[in-house]
Design a protein around this nucleic acid. Structure first.
Length: 236
DNA sequence: GCATTAACACGTA
DNA sequence: TACGTGTTAATGC
């Protein structure tokens, strides 16, 4: 059953507290919710380990229970393009599941994480039978479309402060990443990987954003104080 | 000029 | 102890 997904070979059933952290489960009628909960698998992931591999057929709809993942692609030139960080509460991969085509990106853990997976057949069963589930997935896709437009805008900013501000604001998205809350657990090194800056430059940018009262830098994380301000940050 | 890597001291989990 | 942070110095485009 777990063919093609090495990560979830170590899987166990989801605990009640893990299930409680999954927003789309709550919109389902009880029978559907219980079936999905039974089908759900949870597994730990080591730093650097891949959850999704380019070219592999889709097997699960994935969610981040805890930790931090990274979506990226390898380039012909031998480099890596990082698209986004994936923090707790995120669910991803539905596009690939819908098309039943191979994954077009890699997803790996930036640090020790816990990942949940709903098997593809259960995902399609819910899509075929549940209007609340369809609404929830449609809402997710809609929010994500907004993310992509915002990401283009962030990419056009050249100064490090704006890029760090924009990338951070994305990670605090309350609908896409409901597990984050106001404190995002991320090191300055990890943020550097996501934004494409050195740790030292990220440190400097964070200090600037903190001076503006937009965030507070904490040990091993960043607390957001003014999300709209962070989203709108521009250098002066 | 500005960002990067390297290096170090210091504080925290 | 191991890791994350804050800072400085040297180097490169």
């Amino acid at each position: 059953m777990l063919i093609n997904s090495p990560v979830l070979e170590r899987a166990r059933p989801a605990s009640d507290s893990e299930l409680a952290g999954i927003p789309w489960l709550r919109v389902l009628p009880e029978a559907d919710r219980e079936q999905a909960a039974r089908a759900m698998r949870v597994a730990p992931v080591r730093p650097g380990e891949r959850i999704v591999r380019f070219g592999r057929p889709p097997t699960f709809w994935f969610g981040v229970v805890d930790g931090l993942l990274k979506m990226s692609n390898d380039t012909a030139a031998g480099g890596t393009i990082t698209y986004t960080g994936i923090p707790p509460g995120a669910w991803f991969g539905e596009g690939t599941l819908l098309k039943r085509e191979p994954y077009r990106y890699n997803i790996e853990a930036l640090r020790s994480s816990v990942v949940a997976g709903l098997p593809i057949e259960d995902f399609h069963n819910l899509l075929d039978s549940s209007i609340p589930f369809n609404r929830s997935v449609m809402n997710l896709l809609n929010e994500r479309l907004g993310q992509f437009i915002a990401a283009r805008e962030i990419d056009r900013q050249t100064d490090p402060e704006s890029r760090v501000a924009g990338s951070l604001a994305q990670l605090f998205h309350p609908v896409l990443y409901p597990g984050v809350g106001s404190l995002l657990r991320i090191t300055q090194q990890e943020l550097g990987y996501l934004v494409g800056l050195s740790r030292q430059r990220v440190n400097e940018a964070l200090a600037a954003l903190a001076r503006h009262g937009l965030i507070r830098v904490e040990y091993g994380g960043v607390r957001v104080l003014d999300l709209p301000g962070l989203r709108a940050f521009r250098p002066r």
